[in-house]
Simulated scan of single mutants.
Amino acid sequence: MELIVDDQAPIHVSSQEDGLTGTALAAQEAVRLALDCEQLGWDGYWAAAGLGTTGHPHALTAMASAAATITGSIRVGTGLVLPADGGPVRGAAGFMSLAHLHPRRSDLIVTPDLDAPPGPRSPGPRIAALLAALRHEDAQTTLDTADPPDRTSPRIWLAGRHAEDSAVAAAHGLPFCLRLPADELPRPEALDHYRRFCRTEAGPGAPRIALAVRIACADDPDEAAVLRALLAWAQPADQPTEQPATTAPPPSARPRTLVGTPEQVRPHLAHLLDLYRPDTLAVSTPCPDHQLRLRSFALVRELVTGRRPTA
Rank of each mutant, 00 (worst) to 15 (best):
G55W: 08
V5G: 00
T285V: 04
L258E: 01
G91C: 03
R135Q: 12
T247W: 10
S153Y: 13
R179D: 14
A206Y: 01
S73P: 00
A26T: 05
A298F: 04
G41P: 03
R187Y: 09
A169L: 06
H136D: 12
E29M: 07
E29G: 01
L281W: 07
Y276H: 08
D274I: 05
D115G: 11
D18Y: 14
L227F: 01
D147P: 00
C217N: 01
S65H: 07
C287A: 14
H290G: 06
T247Y: 13
R208A: 10
A234P: 03
L294K: 04
S73R: 15
A232S: 14
G19D: 09
T241P: 07
P186I: 12
L281R: 02
R121L: 11
T285M: 00
T78H: 13
H12L: 14
G50N: 07
S284D: 15
P175S: 11
P148M: 04
S97R: 14
E201Y: 07
R256D: 08
S15K: 13
E2M: 12
L158N: 02
P249A: 07
R187Q: 15
P186M: 06
L180R: 06
P186K: 04
L303D: 02
G306F: 03
D144A: 13
A92H: 04
E201A: 14
L227E: 00
G205H: 02
L134W: 00
L51M: 12
H290M: 11
S153K: 10
S106P: 04
P188G: 10
V304Q: 03
A64P: 09
A64G: 08
G205V: 01
R256M: 10
V76A: 11
G91P: 05
R254S: 14
V76M: 11
R214N: 11
E38N: 03
A27H: 14
L299C: 05
A68V: 02
A216V: 00
S97Y: 08
S97A: 12
H58K: 09
T145H: 13
S15I: 10
D279F: 09
I109Y: 00
A116Y: 06
L101Q: 12
W157P: 05
L299D: 02
V31Q: 09
H162D: 12
A171G: 15
P267I: 05
R151T: 14
A229L: 11
D138L: 15
H136M: 05
L131P: 00
H100P: 02
G203H: 15
P118K: 07
V13T: 15
G79T: 01
D115T: 13
P181W: 05
P117A: 08
A171F: 05
R266K: 14
L101G: 13
G41C: 04
P244F: 06
L131T: 06
R308E: 10
S252Y: 11
L180G: 05
G19W: 13
L292M: 07
G19P: 09
A47I: 02
S252P: 02
R214L: 05
P221I: 00
P175G: 08
P88F: 09
A24K: 13
Q16P: 01
R254G: 12
R105Y: 06
P175W: 02
E201C: 05
Y194C: 09
R195C: 06
T78E: 08
L33E: 03
A99H: 01
P186W: 08
G77C: 04
E184S: 12
V283W: 03
D279L: 13
L35H: 13
P88E: 09
A34I: 06
P221C: 07
A270K: 06
P250Q: 10
D7W: 10
P112N: 04
